[in-house]
């Protein structure tokens, strides 16, 4: 009886230690395989000059990976330059900016987004889908967008 119990215990210990060792190795392998954080590299891409975009106007630009965005000048004092993806989250049509109404409009099914990319009408409002935001950096009079490079 004693021997059996001891034998069982030892087997447990053996399996446990083996499991721990190889298990940790397995964890390392998992980390090894998982795509490296931030490996979708982002870069600061020059878009244009602040004085080239009058208030309420917009300019379209594309990232090196082909994503299209709209950079808008909302005319607001604090943070007038914003950028959002110009691809409608509903079915992928290109939205356009209406400066007078300070909104993005999708011509395909009437999706409308406010100046902050939030859906207010149409299918995107129903499905609560916003326009993806793209960070803008202003240095002097230069406008940069933080876009994905790979």
């Amino acid at each position: 009886m004693e021997n059996d119990r001891r034998s069982f215990f030892l087997s447990l210990l053996t399996l446990g230690s083996l499991g721990a060792g190889y298990g940790l190795f397995g964890f390392f392998s998992g980390r090894f395989l998982y795509p490296v954080e931030g490996s979708a590299r982002t870069a600061k891409m020059f878009v244009g000059f602040t004085d080239e975009i009058p208030p309420r106007e917009s300019v379209q630009f594309a990232s090196p990976t082909g994503e299209t965005f709209l950079l808008t000048n909302t005319g607001d004092g604090v943070d007038p330059y914003q950028a959002y993806s110009s691809v409608c989250p509903h079915l992928g049509c290109q939205v356009h900016w209406e400066g007078d109404h300070q909104r993005f409009v999708c011509p395909c099914h009437g999706g409308i987004f406010d100046a902050a990319g939030r859906p207010v009408a149409g299918p995107p409002a129903r499905d609560k889908q916003s326009l993806k935001q793209c960070s803008i950096v202003v240095e002097g009079r230069s406008l940069y967008a933080l876009v994905e490079v790979t």
């Binding site: 390392f28 392998s29 980390r31 090894f32 998982y34 490296v36 490996s39």
Partner: peptide, 8 residues
């Protein structure tokens, strides 16, 4: 660059 790459 890859985590544990040098080890594997």
């Amino acid at each position: 660059t890859v985590p544990f790459g040098w080890y594997i």
